Simulated assay, not measured.
Amino acid sequence: MTEPPENQEPPDSLIPYDEIVQDSLRQVVRRVLTDVSNAGGLPGAHHFFIAFRTRFPGVDMPRHLLERYPEEMTVVLQHRYWDLLVADEHFEVGLTFNQVPAKLSIPYKAITGFVDPAVNFALQFMVNMPEPADEPPPPPVVVEGESGSNVVSFDFKRKK
């Protein structure tokens, strides 16, 4: 195999490795939620923090929550959730916000983070969301993990 000269960067890949890895890791979230749904609840001390982009296409949530969380929201699946439905492209769950029940539908591609603090496990995701043409994209958010944690973070950048 020929290596590029030291001062030359390798060419852009024609294979979308970053998307393939992101999709594979999202299947971890789907599998975990499926197992929890099939078991009828969370085992032991496990609980999940799931962060997602609220304006991602396919997200369905009450308007008052969207107004309160116009960009991103984190939900907690621990003691009080119901009707967890896991589908191929999204999951649905009932939660209470300020004692008001709400049903959310969240596509896996909208998820930016999945954390199970009971076992110090975390995944972070890049969300490719179309930005309005007249607004610059928001700056990237950097999340630092504690040493010894099981945080998996992928920050793939594609050259244009």
Rank of each mutant, 00 (worst) to 15 (best):
S13F: 05
Y17L: 00
E19F: 13
Q22I: 08
L25K: 13
R31A: 03
V36Y: 13
A39H: 02
P43R: 07
P43Y: 06
R53Y: 00
T54Y: 06
T54A: 05
R55F: 08
G58P: 14
G58A: 10
D60E: 15
H64G: 05
E67F: 03
R68F: 11
Y69N: 07
M73W: 08
V75A: 02
V76L: 06
H79G: 11
R80G: 06
L85Y: 10
A87I: 13
E92T: 04
V93P: 08
V93F: 14
N98W: 12
P101T: 04
P101F: 00
K103D: 02
L104S: 08
S105F: 05
I106N: 10
P107Y: 14
V115C: 10
P117S: 03
P117I: 04
P117Y: 08
F121L: 11
A122Q: 15
A122F: 13
A122N: 13
F125W: 05
V127I: 11
V127L: 09
N128E: 01
M129T: 14
P132A: 09
P137T: 09
P137M: 09
P138K: 09
V141H: 07
V141E: 02
V142C: 03
E144C: 10
V151A: 06
V152R: 07
F154M: 09
F154S: 02
D155A: 12
D155N: 15
K159T: 08
